[in-house]
Design a protein around this nucleic acid. Structure first.
Lengths: 199, 199
DNA sequence: CACCCAACCAAGCAATTGCTTGGTAGGCTA
DNA sequence: TAGCCTACCAAGCAATTGCTTGGTTGGGTG
């Protein structure tokens, strides 16, 4: 797991990471060459190695710092005093917010977690995945127990459906477009909670 | 678009395609080398070129023949005499069935359509995408018009949610596992149509 | 028996890959 | 003014890539 040191003079470094994240998200990690990143940054490929150890270090920093922020938000929800339904709604909204503010990072995680997870260095990705599952299962269990959610649900399957549908939105959602992330979250919660069938 | 010629002696060819599909689905297209495919097939990498023009030809055949089958199923549904709700349910079930029977092909399409779509040769992927959208939008419109579905739905967003949630299941669904594709379809339709909230 | 042909091998080529090396420009500081 | 440090360049290396080439094998067919 990479250290995310926000030292005074890392603006250039941070910019290079942003550029790399965009390329990784768009073309895939392996499919993006260090020369691609260098070209997009207006420097030579070798110059990247003044800032970073390797291409792997770049994704590492991109992913780990994003995950840290995201799970901070989840923790806030879990420890809040909201009721089960409000917590579930907040978790969904926070996720769409993450897509809005960090679409490159989300896309990279969605597309590359399987591949990267194979390396020791990225073992934390699997841990984060388990942690995320724990959050959602807790929220769903609480929902059923408190009578907010239907009791005939297959919790495990429901978790997968929510997780997948929320995060896969990163494929088409574009910040600044005609849809805001909160509008998308509203619509999604409507469908998820009450279904699309006429009452 | 590749011709899918089922000539008498193409068993070896078909087997190589199946092996390639598995690798493309698991590791990605660009991330799978012709040597990987050859190793998995027990032959030399050069020998693949006795059967296929190029690595691209292989995905091409894999994807185009799958798409042909899938859209045949969709057409059957559209031209059937079922009511709006039954058609929608059938479309969902057919999709989960496709995941069950052709998970490699589905996974490849989900993961590589963006990348491959950039090449002229794979322009048909975008056409198929549009065709698929037309199918779902038609089903949803009919549903709203006939009163089966709620009229306050954002049809475009609803389409995206259904499409994404259905197909993304290929990431975790495993044929022969504890869940059958029809059980998954049942649960999904329950959530989709009636929601997860307590009535 | 002579021939054919599908299926393969062994070797290698040109391009692309991640990364290394030795050096330089220019702003800041003691 | 001397020294230092950040950010970079120019060149290239070893490995890997998709694909080509010329040749071999062995089961069938006339």
């Amino acid at each position: 797991m990479a250290a995310t040191q926000d030292e005074p003079t890392n603006s250039r470094r941070a910019e290079l990471l942003r550029i790399a994240a965009g390329l990784f998200a768009e073309k895939g990690f392996k499919n993006t060459t260090v020369r691609d990143i260098a070209d997009a940054s207006g420097i030579q490929s070798g110059s990247l190695y003044h800032h970073f150890d390797s291409k792997e270090s770049m994704v590492d920093e991109i992913l780990s710092s994003f995950q840290e922020e995201l799970f901070g938000s989840y923790d806030e929800i879990l420890t809040s005093t909201d009721d089960a339904r409000a917590k579930l709604e907040r978790a969904v909204r926070v996720s769409f917010e993450a897509i809005d503010r960090h679409r490159h990072e989300v896309a990279i995680f969605q597309n590359e977690a399987d591949y990267l997870g194979g390396f020791d260095r990225f073992a934390y990705l699997a841990e984060r995945n388990a942690q995320s599952r724990a959050v959602w299962i807790t929220l769903l269990d609480d929902g059923v127990r408190s009578g907010v959610l239907r009791s005939d649900l297959d919790i495990e399957l429901t978790y997968r459906f929510i997780r997948d549908t929320v995060w896969v939105a990163v494929r088409w959602y574009r910040p600044g477009g005609s849809l805001t992330h909160s509008h998308v979250a509203d619509q999604y919660l409507t469908i998820l909670l009450d279904g699309i069938a006429h009452a």
